[in-house]
């Protein structure tokens, strides 16, 4: 079974925010909730790199592990989703998530946040695929429509790849070979220190 993953090619991402507004548009995400955002490193100096980040649909997801009500679930494609009917808006997932993916519609006093919202890999939620309830709560279910995430599909430079981890790894490898250099794919492994990041994040100095 395919394992859905995102990879953002920092050599291509130009911080155009296309992915961000594509997501807003497709899912009618309200102001203040950013399922996807673009982070620019070394802004304004040589070596500047931008990376678009959303939920990475982690294999051993911290959000899932800390949720007091276990409202997360993982689909067969490896997409980490959650059930807003169960979510209590405690915010723990956002503390745990290395990427700051979980978002909350309000930042009210007394810690009242509303139900958590995050990138669904455009796969909706627990409601019936394509139902109105699903759309209202989670946005569209593109995977069920046989489509890939809109953010990746609309990415202006095809920096953002989303889909089966093996396939995107292939695509990426091809680019790297063509570039002839070991450009680091920025993805899931970076946060957890796996070799996926090109090189391990700790200890080794290269």
């Amino acid at each position: 079974m395919a394992r859905m993953k995102f990879v953002c090619d920092a050599e291509r991402c130009i911080e155009c925010n296309g992915c961000v507004t594509a997501c807003k548009n497709e899912h009618e995400v309200p102001w203040g909730v950013n399922r996807r955002r673009v982070v620019t490193l070394n802004d304004g100096v040589a070596g500047e790199k931008s990376i678009s980040v959303a939920c990475m649909h982690c294999s051993d997801a911290p959000c899932m592990a800390v949720c007091p009500v276990n409202c997360f679930y993982r689909t067969d494609e490896g997409v980490v989703l959650h059930d807003k009917d169960i979510c209590i808006g405690c915010g723990y997932c956002s503390y745990a998530c290395p990427f700051g993916a979980p978002q909350f519609p309000s930042t009210g006093t007394f810690g009242v946040r509303g139900k958590m919202d995050k990138c669904t890999f455009c796969a909706g939620g627990p409601e019936a695929n394509g139902s109105e309830e699903e759309f209202e709560k989670y946005g569209r279910n593109r995977l069920a429509e046989g489509k890939l995430p809109i953010c990746a599909e609309m990415c202006s430079t095809k920096a953002l790849l989303g889909g089966d981890g093996d396939v995107i790894a292939d695509i990426f490898r091809q680019r790297v070979v063509q570039r002839g250099k070991g450009a680091e794919v920025w993805g899931w492994g970076t946060a957890y220190g796996s070799k996926q990041a090109g090189q391990p994040p700790q200890g080794a100095k290269s």
Partner: peptide, 30 residues
């Protein structure tokens, strides 16, 4: 730094990914 690395090895972004102590923090327009 990543900028310095780029001069000798363009495209090698290892320094960015290695900012383990400070996390990886950059700029967002939000």
């Amino acid at each position: 730094t990543n900028a310095e690395r780029h001069k000798v090895q363009p495209g090698n972004n290892a320094p960015i990914w290695r900012q383990e102590g400070g996390g990886i923090t950059g700029l967002s327009s939000l």
